[in-house]
Design a protein around this nucleic acid. Structure first.
Lengths: 239, 239
DNA sequence: CAAACTCTGTACGCTACCGAACAGATAGCT
DNA sequence: AGCTATCTGTTCGGTAGCGTACAGAGTTTG
């Protein structure tokens, strides 16, 4: 049945061979991730890893005073919970659902078992982890050198790449938390984009009307990350 | 002979079992890394991986306009070149020798061969990579939320942890490049630390005279990273 | 020993972003 | 419908860090 095959919507799952897939398929469990749900808390062991389909998960670094910054975003191209197979079991960061949607989840020990077979799954996950590494690095530079305007563009495009359609359900408050800036800063930047006719903002719902326009305005960070993801995760390259 | 055993100065090499070690030992080549040398350029495949002994290597993200930011630092606890075994072969970042010193290097394909034996070496390298991930994430937050003063403290402590003694050979210009700020900003911050009696700065040579003082002044980012490194890389934990 | 170079200190105006406070707008609820 | 929550827009003073410019101090070179 076709419905059984929607795991293909996740890039990693979709890249596995029949053989590899058949071992984990029976254990894949489809779940709906509501906005704001926490999939992973700082220092806590995760029971499952999550393969998003149309949901988006943000990896956040939260500080003692509550201030936070998004360090990476995970969508249908990836998986939440790399620390399980990397061997550390936990991370000091949090994983929060930024855009509600569906995902497949898998018990952590099953993923680890599969990982340690040292087959295609391992290669795939490692390449994905490297892509994640790049995203984090580029986020660090972007935080240092680029304006809120540019970062907002980057964030919108990264999100847009991970959902179907061109609508995002996000309040400015939430975006501000992700970017680690003030809510007013987002209001201002979003206002500029609105005036320029690139987006349409209405109370928690952003519609991107001119994607090309955003791409012209965004800093190079978006493209660097995108190209690296494409390079590392194109299906042929998996092996 | 004792001189043969200084590979133990590198935490990763030192954690390997006799058995694991014996396979790569004949291929380890000791090299001296001069200040400023580039070990890895954006998008270029590295021929070797480097295990620093008393040298420090900075991983930098360089942008089109030449602006840069250090995203992580590697010393005797780690290895330069994780992209080789992660499967991507290259990264968009650069690796520059920040503090001259010695390192062992190993041909990339030999490390990969060892990695794919899926033994202790693999587990060790993956845990190290996770530590690196944490460092990058924390750098991203720090760039967003903390003052140059605090970041300078963090940077000094991270460097100090990776060299013998309490002297760093660094011009303010270089530090500024690492932190991704203006040279004048470093002058100012370093001046404050000098006045507070924490460091002694003289033309490209910093002597840390009050390490405790720095630790009191640094932001939480330093401690978060340090603890995660300790947790992931303590020898017992390796297996 | 003087010249050339490099590194450090200081000053000044400028801009982006912060913090706080508040007013208007929109959506959901009863 | 009206009430209330919440979300968005705007303002205003404060500040950290930027860009630029330049002066002094230390180090190397001829």
């Amino acid at each position: 049945m076709l419905a059984q095959h929607d795991f293909q919507k996740n890039g990693l799952l979709g890249s596995l061979s029949e053989d590899e897939l058949s071992r984990i398929l029976p254990h894949l469990e489809k779940v709906t991730l509501p906005l704001g749900e926490s999939l992973s808390e700082s220092g806590r062991v995760m029971n499952h890893v999550y393969f998003p389909l149309d949901s988006i998960v943000s990896l956040l670094c939260v500080m003692e005073d509550g201030a936070s910054t998004e360090i990476a975003v995970v969508g249908h191209e990836g998986v939440v919970g790399v620390s399980l197979f990397m061997g550390g079991e936990t991370t000091p960061s949090r994983a929060i659902v930024q855009s509600a949607g569906e995902a497949y989840r898998l018990k952590g020990h099953l993923l680890k078992r599969e990982f340690y077979r040292a087959g295609a799954m391992q290669r795939l996950l490692l390449r994905y982890t490297q892509a994640l590494l790049t995203q984090m690095a580029q986020t660090a530079v972007c935080n240092r050198h680029h304006s809120v305007d540019q970062q907002l563009c980057r964030w919108l495009l990264l999100s847009l790449d991970r959902i179907p359609g061109n609508e995002l359900n996000m309040t400015q408050e939430l975006i501000a938390n992700m970017l680690g800036v003030r809510r007013e800063g987002v209001t201002e930047s979003a206002g500029k984009l609105q005036k320029a006719g690139l987006i349409d903002y209405r109370r928690g719902r952003i519609t991107v009307v001119d994607r090309r326009g955003l791409e012209e305005r965004v800093c190079e960070c978006y493209e660097v990350v995108k190209q690296e993801y494409d390079r590392l995760l194109e299906h042929d390259a998996v092996m």
